[in-house]
Computed example of a mutant assay.
Amino acid sequence: MSQDTVSVAIIGSGNIGTDLMIKIMRNSKTLKVGAMVGIDPKSDGLARAQRLGVATTADGVDGLIDMPGFKDIKIAFDATSAGAHAVHNQKLQAHGVRVIDLTPAAIGPYVIPVVNFEQHTAAPNINMVTCGGQATIPIVHAVSRVSPVHYAEIVASISSKSAGPGTRANIDEFTETTSKAILEVGGAAEGRAIIILNPAEPPLIMRDTVYCFVSDDADEKAISDSVEKMIQSVQEYVPGYRLKQQVQFEKITEENKQNIPGLGWATGLKVSVFLEVEGAGHYLPSYAGNLDIMTSAALTVAERIAVAGAKGV
């Protein structure tokens, strides 16, 4: 590990935090895990961190601040809950620690690495939206950079086995945060997000559907090309991110007009994009692509922050 690596802390020793720790230790050339923070001394995440030689505390953020190595921590990932994040952020900001928020708290700007990271390189707190947002908002943006998106709707279907207590406790925040980010980052005029916890056995990998309503004169080939380029961009940090089939188009005419939020009964072009996200299997099963895309996106943002800092940006 290079002496120039940036020391980071992971707050939350559950599935997301543990997967993130392993990703950093295996793959990152710019980051090192300086601390793993939890509140359950018996959690698997803290136990694994200890076995891997990572400093740990079961006393939460206060325990992190009291650790001898805290002065070296430059970035903290918060993988706890939206409610806890506000307190964590306040304490960390007081010490000048950059915070990457993997909860739906949305204190800082919404960031999707392939869409808008460059606009927020100096933000003290960066919000990673949600797993559904990371998977679908790139597609909404891909469509909107070709044609105005009057309405976008996303449906994220994840295995119930990959939805831990944090995810289940934040369902309302998930839909609200994702819906807002569809507008602010995706570029849609109106938007809605839906999450489905699928109890199927064996567990199914993450599936996402993106519907965009655009004007009927939109260029279908340009939209397809833009979506495919975006897929390739996301695959650079989430290799298991892929289209299930070609982008689908449906003309909405006077004969089959649809009631579109913000537009009323309207005609136009419906764009449907069907995705699946397979996880890398670092800590979690490959079907947990919803967690993998969050940790991969957060890792990508932290690495870009570290590189920008090294360049004095």
Rank of each mutant, 00 (worst) to 15 (best):
L197M: 11
I223T: 07
S226C: 05
L204Q: 15
I205T: 15
V210M: 01
A181T: 10
V214H: 10
I231F: 06
A200V: 14
A222W: 00
Q246E: 12
A218M: 08
I252D: 00
N259V: 13
V273K: 07
E220H: 09
K257E: 13
T267D: 02
T267G: 09
K180W: 03
I252A: 07
A266T: 11
E254R: 11
V271G: 02
N256D: 15
T178V: 03
G268S: 06
V273P: 04
M230L: 06
L204I: 15
E190V: 07
A218C: 09
K180L: 10
Q246P: 08
V214K: 06
M206N: 15
T267Q: 09
F249T: 08
P261H: 02
G262W: 04
Q258M: 12
F213Q: 08
D219N: 15
L183N: 01
E220A: 00
A189W: 02
G187K: 05
L243G: 00
R207S: 10
L197Y: 11
V185L: 08
A222T: 01
Q235C: 09
V277R: 00
L263V: 01
F274D: 10
V210P: 00
S226L: 09
T253C: 01
D208N: 14
Y241L: 10
N198Q: 10
Q235N: 13
G279Y: 03
K229P: 04
D219P: 08
S233R: 15
A193G: 00
G268K: 06
K244F: 00
A200R: 11
V271A: 03
I205C: 12
V234R: 09
T178R: 00
L183M: 07
T177I: 05
S233M: 11
G268L: 06
Y237M: 03
Q246M: 06
D225L: 05
G191L: 06
M230W: 05
E276T: 12
L269R: 00
W265Y: 11
V247L: 05
R192S: 02
Q258R: 13
G186D: 02
E250Q: 13
I195Y: 01
F274Y: 13
E254A: 12
A189K: 15
A200I: 12
Q235P: 07
E254P: 03
D216F: 07
V247P: 00
T253F: 00
K257R: 14
A266D: 08
P239Q: 12
P239K: 12
Q232P: 04
W265C: 03
D217R: 14
S224G: 07
Y237T: 09
P199M: 09
E201C: 01
D225P: 03
Q235S: 13
I195R: 07
V273H: 01
Y211R: 15
S233E: 15
D216G: 09
D208E: 14
L197E: 12
D219I: 08
E236N: 12
R192V: 09
I223P: 11
V227C: 07
N259H: 13
V277M: 05
E278Y: 02
A193K: 01
V238P: 07
I196E: 05
N198K: 10
S179W: 00
P239F: 10
E176S: 13
R207G: 11
L243C: 05
E201R: 07
E255I: 13
G240S: 06
G262I: 01
E255M: 13
A193L: 00
V238Q: 14
